[in-house]
Design a protein around this nucleic acid. Sequence first.
DNA 1: GTATGTGCAAACTTTTTGCACTTCG
DNA 2: CGAAGTGCAAAAAGTTTGCACATAC
Lengths: 143, 143
Amino acid sequence: MDAVIKKLSSKGLRVTPQRVAVLDTVTRLNNHPGTGQIIAFIQKHHPSIATGTVYRILEILVQAGLIRKVRTGDDIMRYDAVLEKHHHLYSSKSERIDDHYDAKLDTLLDAYFKKNAIPGFTVEDIQLQLTGTFSKNKLKRKP
Amino acid sequence: MDAVIKKLSSKGLRVTPQRVAVLDTVTRLNNHPGTGQIIAFIQKHHPSIATGTVYRILEILVQAGLIRKVRTGDDIMRYDAVLEKHHHLYSSKSERIDDHYDAKLDTLLDAYFKKNAIPGFTVEDIQLQLTGTFSKNKLKRKP
DNA sequence: GTATGTGCAAACTTTTTGCACTTCG
DNA sequence: CGAAGTGCAAAAAGTTTGCACATAC
């Protein structure tokens, strides 16, 4: 929780209870929550925070680079509080999205695009979308 | 246009003027149009087609595998009528999204994931999201 | 104290849906 | 002809916004 406050002020953002709550929520709901999930959680734990405020704060946090928007195959906007470089595993059968870290792969790709530059385009970030099926249930269940 | 009819019937879909128009539109608006763009185009060229119908048809075409939803970094749902395997180049400064074909890269990645399987996950499709800047514009040059 | 942020509710935008009518096969 | 698709318009869902009040710094 203290870390959340630190993050906010490190970006020069005013630390309000509402912002702390939203950033904390996105961090806790670690499986790429959608706006709906975030608002539901907020309204349960902080009933006094208005939904309009949540929308405004999510936008501010994205602008500040404290969270990221993740696109799903469906049309739901999701957020991600993990800022380290990582890829995403999408289930072709469910809404599940897992993070995937692979430093070796990152190195491989960096090297590849250094050797094989794309004409007219400078690569700044590489992110993989791996679609497939989760064969084992290493489930992260919600309380 | 005939190709569009062929695609529809090849999937066992009934060929209606509305479906032809929508599939043709997504194909013509080749730069990954959003729902808004598609509906605007349709209403201009086929004013009698209802927007509700467009939504229904887009969903049907996605289910049939004739078009795909594209995951963008921002919050706009876009569609793609290109079915061959390809990756996407995203501008970090604009809404532009280009297709990127790279068979060599695909081979490299397939080999990589064959050797380095992800525990609990079977990869079915690999798609790269390359974010960066377009240094030269093929259509119009900007100083 | 002041610039900034928030609550609230209304306005907007986008998407879905029920039903009578139409049309493809 | 019959099953499937469409138009229409209303409703649901999701998001934005103006303004008076509250608050972080």
